[in-house]
Design a protein around this nucleic acid. Structure first.
Length: 1119
RNA sequence: GCCCGGAUGGUGGAAUUGGUAGACACGCAGGACUUAAAAUCCUGUGGCUUCACGGCUGUGCGGGUUCAAGUCCCGCUCUGGGUACCA
């Protein structure tokens, strides 16, 4: 019998399918074990040989656990929503659902060939309504909950509403977007819409105006983890910052629990570190610095400040736009402007296309804080109505009244419009309120405002020599004096026009003095306030106290602008650089002098608290996740709009299915693709949300759904969840460290909080498999003068020779001679022409060649000549060979089509079988390490399987016997059992392949074909090479699947040796070995070793200084 | 810059607690079988040196600890990945 792997594999795959071998049910008699692979996005390119690496490892582990008596859940599914299918749809018009379905079918076909033990009856696809209804359901739950920072738990929003009704924000411990305060009376007086707007500040799923990563090329916003170095991770398109109203998830509320959870899960330290860094906790203090403000505008003649109603950050962005608007007025606007201009309305001055906060308003009377807006028909659209609501809300916050008119009203009833405006103007009583554009946290009136800073180094307060504000800070405008205004404006304009990328690339110090000063709350010194973009508005308070002596960024800034530097640490040398380390003894620091830094930090914090100068605070770098995508191929939000406010659909309405659209592009009005869907509204006629959910939505809870995939009443039943609990082993790529692995932890914690599931952490143990890189092959072509039509390829040896820097004339001549010889065999006329050339520079060119026509770096010249890709150049080319072979160069690169180095698992399975593929993938090297795929070694693994086979069959003859095994055979077997068990438990699969090889080699050389030995060996092998193991298992006379065999029990007794081979070393260098009885004691070993004649020779008449005997290990004699 | 890995023959890699460095494979060389090829099997294979026995040397580099270091400590170099003005 030959080892006919193709037939064997087909046969058993069919058997497993028919017998439902891999289907699992809840079985409370057995302990459970849950092994999960990160589910793939089914791309159009199919699987390459790198993809199954992790799947094979997890499959081995699953099968092993099953042999060990566990009830193993090992499911697979597809992360089916995603950009590539949508991009493809845009290009071809093919519905992404069809593309996705086809890709999934291809993936499945490829996966099936490898013989995985997945329970396919539990498959999930994120794009199927019966799956994504639970994504939508969770979103509704998140909308209806807030996060209690005191209980560290999500609670129903109703609780918060009740609290507001009784106490307002007093005593509230809820995670929020913005710190706001109001009384119960305030709350109860608010309209329903106003209440809804306020609640958005607390919901876990909320809608807000946020600075987003906008990718114009993809036409969508991206999450932080989808952007790398200013470009999109997928596609590498530029990304810019933009303010947009988006759905967000309050993941920041879970920051502390995400950190705490890391302590109890078994992930690699480096992965935990990435998450810790991403969460970015810093404990410090917030401190208020009083500012001596520039004189109020009235005192200066009101030159420019009253016009400065724009949020300065937006000003630079919007200024040009506002000018364009002014030049392109609508008819209605012109009509209205003609009467409002020149103070013709009761003497009130109006401005048009004025920037207020981040909006360009049509008309404004600054004196009365009245905004007049004229709207076209466009404002009847739901999304615009909604945006208008927000706009009105924000403008009201800034104390502006807004009245709106339609174009029709203005054009046809201008007198009615004017009457209304005039009435409104006269009714507004403007309180002499200052700082309208300043957030409420600025204390006091003009002249005694204060700025809050966040610092982790409260101890360095005496070293603060200046303050720095972020350019985008709302305080920037407040502290800018008239004298500095033009300078500041110039600076703000400059930094605003810079893209994120430019800012990152250019690390030059830049900044501008605001003209104002702040007072150090502890030392009382006056310090200048500067504005610079090295301070970020989004972190802390957007303002810092600069301590140049002990912060390198502050140091660079101080040096550049010649600001004072005060050293606070005894003995520190700060002449060249700052001392950032948190160590040393304090000096120049008043009450902190003499303390070490750690003590000083604590004491300074206590001081700040006691003296009411600020508060102790913890900041996190982790930001809320933006949850809207302006794309088609994603989960629709279960959201509709009523009076411009978002409302959740009833859970009974779920799933809200993704509608059909005619094109997968934004609408003419710039709405997302769902704007094209017909009747995209509720039964009552309310418009539905046009955004869809991002990629991580569907992947955040899929591991729960596998437990109970067909349940149409719940995400997962209590019974299933209580049995399967959470994932025991999760395998996947490291690239998900700060995306999926954060979001799914948050999602899981939320479901835990609301009592839907029983465990807080989803993935107990996690292993990252390394990437499989490609190994590319090159052919080298001589670059001949243009008049030569011939192509000449040279084998690697000659390429290397010509590459040599100091190539000798002799070497060159030898090469030329050989080249001449080989060329003349094919084309002697060419040799003549070549020799007529005065000088040949021997320029050469490396060209990627398809690795599939290269074997062990030897090019298959015939296939190369006829390969469609190379034909044109290669058809009649001349090959200069070495040893009659054409050897290719090689390099390790990414596995990709463009490198011509993609190896398809199907081809390997076809040629060697799935078992060889599985084993070879494991044999390549440690699971967690990245390594190149090099098909070269695969023969060795395949030969191993053949040798294993030959223990059972000699030719056509079945040679297994029932003889009793001898001690040596049992020793080999049990050595292997021990090794394999240890290896699997430690995910060291590459070494177990070696162990199997050693075992089979030894059994072969002993000609051992005893059933007692082979039976156990087959079970050991079954997790790795299930097909051949199943075949041999049945050959041995078993009727049931090898999957349900029992893992052999290791018996130490078989390994006991009667003799030990002692290496005898001198000064640590082994010279010879000595075989001694294992039960010999230390003294006897020493004596025997010293008496040995080789020892005497080594000692050369000298007495040893010392003899070390490690029993059972080694003897070392010190000379 | 910071954080986390890695560096061992021509190649992939092994050495689990400090105890014979290079297991197991690939490749290469030689041989057996064969008319021949494939397949299979056997032998050799870190480097230098020696006819040989053997000797010397050797785990990125420089130090150190130890009877003994690929493994532990200190200081570097190169390299892969993550991250980025986070106060």
């Amino acid at each position: 019998m030959e080892y006919n792997f193709n037939a064997i594999e087909k046969k058993w795959q069919q058997f497993w399918k028919e017998n439902k071998t891999y289907q699992v049910q809840i079985d409370t008699n057995k302990p459970k074990y849950y092994v999960l692979d990160m589910f793939p996005y089914p791309s159009g390119a199919g699987l390459h040989v790198g993809h199954p690496l992790g799947y094979i490892a997890s499959d081995i582990y699953s099968r092993y656990k099953r042999l060990k008596g566990f009830n193993v859940l090992h499911p697979m599914g597809y992360d089916a929503y995603g950009l590539p299918a949508e991009q493809y749809a845009i290009q071809t018009g093919q519905h992404p659902a069809i593309t996705t379905k086809n890709n999934i079918a291809r993936y499945r076909e490829q996966l099936d060939k490898i013989g995985f033990s997945y329970d396919w009856s539990r498959e999930v696809r994120t794009c199927e309504p019966d799956y994504y209804q639970w994504t939508q359901w969770a979103f509704i739950k998140m909308f209806n909950h807030y996060y209690d920072t005191n209980l560290q738990k999500a609670l129903p929003i109703e609780n918060l509403i009740k609290a507001f009704e009784v106490n307002g924000t007093n005593g509230i411990t809820a995670a929020f977007t913005e710190e706001i305060s109001f009384t119960a009376a305030d709350w109860n007086a608010k309209s329903d819409i106003e209440k809804q707007e306020l609640l958005m500040n607390y919901r876990i799923a909320y809608k807000a105006d946020t600075m987003v990563n906008w990718c114009p090329a993809l036409g969508t916003v991206l999450a932080n983890d989808e952007v790398s170095e200013g470009v999109s991770v997928r596609g590498g398109h530029p990304v810019e910052q933009k303010i947009m109203s988006q759905w967000c998830l309050r993941v920041s509320a879970y920051a502390q629990r995400l950190l705490d959870g890391l302590e109890v899960i078994d992930w690699t330290e480096s992965l935990k570190d990435s998450q810790r860094y991403w969460i970015g906790k810093s404990e410090g203090a917030e401190m208020k610095f009083k500012i001596s403000l520039p004189p109020a505008p009235s005192e200066r003649g009101g030159e420019c400040l009253p016009y400065q109603t724009a949020d300065l950050y937006s000003y630079a962005l919007l200024k040009e736009l506002s000018e364009i608007h002014r030049k392109n007025t609508t008819e209605a606007e012109s009509v209205l402007w003609s009467v409002l201009r020149n103070k013709s309305l009761s003497g009130y001055k109006f401005r048009r296309q004025h920037i207020i906060d981040k909006y360009i308003v049509d008309f404004v009377c600054l004196e009365k804080h009245l905004i007049v807006e004229v709207d076209g028909g466009y404002h009847n659209r739901p999304d615009i109505q909604e945006a208008d609501k927000v706009r009105t809300f924000i403008l009201r916050e800034k104390d502006f009244e807004v009245i709106r008119f339609t174009n029709d009203e203005v054009i046809n009833n201008i007198h009615v419009v004017l009457e209304k405006i005039e009435k409104k103007l006269n009714s507004i009583e403007i309180q002499p309120k200052l700082d309208q554009t300043i957030s409420p946290s600025v204390g006091g009136g003009r002249g005694e405002a204060s700025l809050t800073v966040f610092t982790t180094r409260a101890d360095t307060i005496y070293g603060v020599t200046f303050m720095v504000l972020a350019p985008e800070s709302e305080y920037t405008q407040l502290v800018t004096t008239a004298e500095q205004k033009s300078e500041v404006d110039k600076y703000l304009h400059k930094v605003k026009n810079r893209t994120e990328r430019e800012r990152l690339a250019d690390r030059k110090v830049s900044g501008v003095f605001s003209g104002s000063y702040a007072i150090n709350p502890i030392s009382g010194t006056e310090i200048p306030i500067w504005i610079s973009d090295y301070v970020l508005a989004g972190y802390g308070t957007g303002a810092i106290m600069a301590v140049p002596a002990h912060d390198s960024r502050d140091y660079a800034f101080a040096k550049h602008f010649n600001l004072p530097i005060i050293c606070l640490i005894e003995g520190a040398d700060i002449s060249e650089e700052s001392l950032d380390a948190k160590e040393g003894i304090m000096m120049n620091s008043g009450f902190l002098n003499g303390l070490n830094v750690k003590e000083a930090i604590q004491k300074a914090k206590d001081y700040i608290k006691e003296n009411n100068l600020g508060r102790v605070k913890t900041n996190y770098r982790l930001r809320d996740a933006i949850f809207s995508r302006q794309r088609y191929w994603g989960e629709p939000f279960p959201v509709y709009y009523k009076d411009g406010m978002p409302q959740m659909l009833d859970e009974k309405e779920l799933p809200l299915e993704l509608p059909e659209v005619d094109k997968y592009l934004p609408t003419e009005k710039g709405e997302p693709p769902l704007g094209r869907a017909k009747n995209w509204q509720t039964k009552e006629g309310y418009p539905l949300e046009l955004n869809t959910m991002p990629g991580f939505a569907g992947s955040s809870a899929y591991f729960l759904r596998y437990m109970d995939p067909k349940n149409n009443k719940e995400l997962v039943s209590k019974e299933a969840n209580n049995y399967w609990k959470s994932v025991d082993l999760y395998l996947g790529g490291i690239e998900h460290a700060t995306g999926h692995l954060i979001y799914s932890r948050v999602w899981n914690k939320f479901l835990y909080d609301i009592g839907e599931i029983c465990e807080d952490e989803p993935f107990k143990k996690l292993i990252n498999q390394g990437m499989i890189q490609g190994r590319s092959n090159f052919v080298y072509r001589l670059v001949l003068p243009i008049e030569f039509k011939e192509k000449i390829y040279i084998s690697k040896k000659y390429y290397d020779l010509l590459e040599k820097e100091n190539i000798s004339n002799i070497e060159l001549q030898e090469f030329q001679k050989e080249a001449r010889r080989q060329i003349s065999k094919v084309n002697s006329e060419l040799v003549e022409r070549l020799e007529k050339l005065n000088s040949i520079t021997w320029n050469k060119q490396g060209i990627h060649v398809d690795v599939n026509i290269v074997d062990n770096d030897v090019l298959n010249i015939e296939e190369f000549r006829n390969h469609p890709k190379y034909k044109q150049d290669a058809k009649d080319a001349i090959f200069i060979l070495e040893d009659d072979k054409f050897i290719c160069g090689w390099a390790v690169e990414k596995m990709s089509k463009s490198m011509d180095n993609v190896v398809n698992p199907d081809d390997i399975v076809e040629k060697y079988g799935a078992d060889t593929l599985r084993l070879y993938e494991m044999f390549l090297g440690p699971l967690e390490q990245s390594k190149p795929w090099d098909t070269n070694g695969i023969d060795g693994v395949h030969r191993f399987l053949k040798r294993l086979w030959s223990l059972f069959y000699k030719g056509e003859e079945y040679i297994v016997t029932d003889e009793d095994p001898i001690a040596d055979e049992l020793k080999i077997l049990h050595k292997t059992i021990k090794k394999i068990e240890w290896d699997i438990e430690n995910f060291s699969f590459n070494t177990s392949v070696s162990a199997f090889m050693i075992c089979v080699n030894e059994l072969s050389s002993m000609k051992c074909s005893k059933k007692a030995i082979l039976s156990d060996l087959v079970v050991l092998l079954a997790p790795y090479v299930p097909h051949i193991a199943e075949e041999l298992w049945h050959v041995l006379g078993n009727k049931a699947s090898v999957c349900d065999a029992k893992f052999p029990v290791f018996n130490e007794a078989y390994l006991v040796e009667s003799v030990v081979k002692y290496p005898i070393s001198f000064n640590g260098k082994v010279k010879f070995t000595l075989e001694l009885p294992a039960d010999m004691n230390k003294e006897e070993v020493e004596k025997t070793a010293l008496a040995n004649e080789q020892t005497i020779k080594q000692l050369n008449g000298n007495a040893p200084k010392k003899v070390i005997v490690v029993l059972g290990k080694i003897v070392n004699i010190v000379l």
